[in-house]
Amino acid sequence: MDLQLKGKVVLVTGGSKGIGKAIAKAFKEEGAIVAIAARSKEDLEKTLFDYRLDASYEGDLSTFEGRDTVFQNLINDFGTIDILVNNVGGSNGATTMETDMSLFEEAMNLNYFSAVHFSKLAAPIMKENGEGSIINISSVFGREAGGKPTYNGAKAAMISFTKSFADEVIKDGIRVNGVAPGSILHPTGNWQKRLDENPEKIKAFVEQEIPAGRFGTVEEIANVVLFLASEKSSWVVGATLNVDGGQSKSNF
C-alpha cells in the first residue's frame, strides 16, 4: 500500500532510540525525508548512519532554547515541515509524596511542553502549506492509573492537548492525532531492564495484564504512526489511539 509519504519532511523528536527510532526508520522506508532530534550525539549519529536518515539534531528538548534551535536548524536545512512526531519523553520520580516538585516540572517540560512548543512552531508552516500532520506519542497511562505520577500527569495533558489543538487547526488542513502505547519491549527501554532483573515477575505481569499475552514491539507503534500521518486516515482528527494488545482498562 502506497501511503503517499515519499518526499514528506518529517521530524521525530526522541528519534535516536526505542519507539522514536522505529518511527524514523518506518518513514524512511516509505521514502520520506527524515530528521531526528535527541540529546545523545552518539545515539543520533548511530541511528542516522544505520537507517540512512537525512539529518539529526542534538539538543536538550526539555528546554525552550533547545527546541527552538532544533526546529530552526530543520527549517534552515529543508525549508519546511510536513509531519511532526512528538515522541520525546521519559519517566522519573516515585510516588507523589516521595517525588520532589522539581521532578514533576521536569516531566512536564520533557513530555508535555516539548509537544506543545514543537506543535506551535510547526503549525504556521503547515498552515501555509495547506496541510500537515502532528502525531503525539503519549501512553495508556495518560488515561488510567499505572505508571509514575509525574509521567501519567504529563501524558494525560498531552492527550488533552491533542484533542484541543486538533480542533483548533483542522480548518487549516492540519490533522493532530496521538498514539497511546501500552507496554512495549525494546533493548533500551524500562521493560527490558525489568525483564533482565526479574524474568518471572515480568512473565507474570504479561500473563495477568496484557490480554494479547506478549509485549508490543516498536514496529507496531510505528505502523500506526504511519497510518495517522498518511491520507489514509484523513477523517481521523483529535484521536489518541490505544496500541496496547488490550492492556488498557478504559473503554475508549
Score class of each variant (00 low, 15 high):
11 L>C: 02
200 E>S: 05
246 G>I: 07
206 V>C: 06
197 E>C: 03
88 V>P: 09
94 A>K: 15
109 N>T: 02
101 M>T: 03
28 K>S: 07
96 T>R: 14
117 H>K: 06
181 P>H: 07
35 A>R: 00
169 V>L: 12
142 G>Q: 06
1 M>R: 13
191 W>Q: 10
126 M>F: 15
89 G>Y: 04
234 S>M: 01
165 F>H: 03
35 A>G: 09
138 S>D: 06
217 T>C: 01
252 F>C: 07
37 A>G: 08
173 G>Q: 06
234 S>H: 01
138 S>C: 05
25 K>R: 15
134 I>H: 00
102 S>C: 02
23 I>C: 11
119 S>Q: 11
34 V>L: 11
150 T>M: 14
191 W>C: 09
151 Y>H: 08
95 T>W: 09
69 T>A: 13
46 K>M: 11
119 S>A: 15
237 V>L: 12
153 G>M: 03
19 I>L: 13
71 F>V: 14
246 G>D: 10
96 T>S: 07
89 G>D: 02
109 N>H: 13
142 G>A: 05
235 W>P: 02
144 E>R: 07
29 E>V: 11
177 N>Y: 00
8 K>L: 10
102 S>W: 00
100 D>A: 15
11 L>D: 05
176 V>Q: 08
74 L>A: 08
114 S>E: 08
232 K>T: 06
187 P>L: 08
59 G>E: 08
57 Y>R: 00
114 S>R: 02
91 S>K: 14
43 D>N: 10
145 A>W: 04
66 G>E: 12
52 R>M: 10
156 A>Q: 04
223 N>D: 15
72 Q>R: 15
6 K>L: 00
159 I>A: 02
7 G>M: 03
122 A>F: 12
64 F>Y: 05
98 E>S: 14
233 S>P: 00
53 L>I: 10
228 L>G: 15
219 E>F: 01
179 V>M: 00
220 E>R: 09
42 E>P: 09
56 S>E: 04
28 K>Q: 03
225 V>C: 08
218 V>Q: 15
30 E>A: 06
79 G>E: 01
76 N>H: 07
56 S>G: 07
75 I>V: 15
76 N>E: 10
136 N>Y: 08
7 G>N: 14
81 I>T: 08
209 E>S: 10
251 N>D: 13
136 N>C: 01
115 A>S: 15
53 L>W: 05
239 A>S: 05
15 G>L: 02
229 A>F: 12
243 V>E: 14
209 E>M: 13
78 F>T: 00
179 V>L: 09
146 G>F: 09
77 D>C: 03
215 F>M: 10
142 G>H: 04
21 K>C: 11
85 V>A: 02
44 L>S: 04
156 A>P: 03
121 L>N: 14
237 V>E: 06
